[in-house]
Design a protein around this nucleic acid. Structure first.
Length: 149
DNA sequence: GCCAACGTTGGC
DNA sequence: GCCAACGTTGGC
């Protein structure tokens, strides 16, 4: 079992949206490093749902991988804001996964609280602020779940 | 809305 | 292959 963290702006897609629809497609990732993590995800892997550009920004809950990587259709849709005319149809550049809602934390875990926890100083979230899909260690996962459950 | 960080693009 | 210009992310 691997653990991950994925970011979304709640104005666009929040954990409440996912809770209502139960399963959602995580499309629109347009960064190669993030894409490579998407492609490494396995069914049942667990994911922290992070709200970015929020008040406050932080971890809102958890989900799991419901479907492993497949081509993100929005890359071929000229009407879509994530359209990528350079993506070869026979070797699509961008992938997505489907995620399943598991739980909303009673209280969001804000970024500034994460910064205050010594055991979480190594989180990719703190070191690589702009990466929208990133791995989480087992120790980080367990601690965050303990803090938020 | 500002701006720092950083990824991508494209000229050379 | 370098690097300046530019665009995007995301905290504040």
């Amino acid at each position: 079992m691997n653990y991950w963290l994925m970011k979304s702006e709640p104005d666009v897609f929040s954990i409440d949206h996912l809770r209502k629809q139960k399963i959602g497609g995580w499309d629109g990732v347009r960064n190669y490093q993030a894409r490579n993590f998407i492609r490494a995800m396995k069914k049942k892997d667990r994911v922290l749902f992070y709200h970015s550009n929020a008040k406050p920004s932080g971890i809102a809950g958890i989900m799991e991988i419901a479907r492993e990587a497949y081509p993100d259709p929005t890359q071929f849709d000229p009407e879509n804001e994530h359209y990528d005319p350079g993506s070869p149809p026979n070797a699509p550049r961008w992938s997505q996964v489907d995620v399943k809602f598991l739980k909303t934390f009673r209280k969001i875990l804000p970024l500034d609280e994460i910064r205050d926890v010594p055991a979480l100083q190594g989180m990719v979230l703190l070191k690589r602020g702009r990466l929208s899909v990133q791995p989480v260690t087992t120790a980080e996962w367990r601690l965050i779940l303990r803090m938020c459950s």
